[in-house]
């Protein structure tokens, strides 16, 4: 069996609040990260990796580095279908052409996180 972790930020957590999905939230790294873990049958995992640029299986048998468009669409299906069963993967794969189109634009459209990096730059400057 392969797996897929759908990461939950505060917005996504509030989106599933009160639904049966709430009890399925998994704590990762001691609760530092919250996620919904989907079990993905081999055939569907193969289809994801084959069709989505960058998607790969890591040593934990998790599908990682799938395009963000795929992860977003997947979360929407989970929310609507209130499930983390393999059927949500089936459902999201029906939108594959649209997801691929969005994924192709990610290299230009993915915003750089707005994080202050002056601490690291300061350490580099001090060492130079």
């Amino acid at each position: 069996m392969n797996y897929l972790a759908v990461l939950l930020d505060s917005k996504r957590i509030s989106d599933i609040k009160g639904s049966p999905l709430e009890s399925k939230v998994t704590d990762m790294f001691g609760g530092a990260i919250k996620a919904l873990i989907i079990e993905v049958p081999e055939n569907l995992a193969g289809k994801i990796i084959e069709n989505l640029p960058g998607a790969r299986l890591d040593a934990r048998f998790f599908i990682e580095e799938a395009p963000i468009a795929f992860k977003r669409a997947l979360f929407e299906k989970i929310k609507t279908m209130k499930s983390i069963g393999a059927e949500v993967i089936d459902a999201v794969l029906t939108d594959l052409p649209k997801i691929k189109e969005l994924a192709a634009k990610e290299s230009e459209s993915l915003p750089i996180p707005d994080v202050d990096i002056s601490e690291a730059l300061g350490l580099q400057k001090k060492a130079a």
Binding site: D9, G30, A32, D58, R60, F62, E65, P113, V115, A120
Partner: peptide, 30 residues
């Protein structure tokens, strides 16, 4: 998992310190 961490970064999730040091993350952003 390096792949998992790259996925975190791509989704705009600040990696918690149990996974990646904040200064290291800042270099990735640089």
């Amino acid at each position: 998992s390096g792949s998992f961490i790259r996925s975190l970064l791509a989704e705009g999730v600040f990696p918690p310190p149990v996974i990646m040091r904040r200064e290291v993350y800042q270099i990735v952003l640089k």
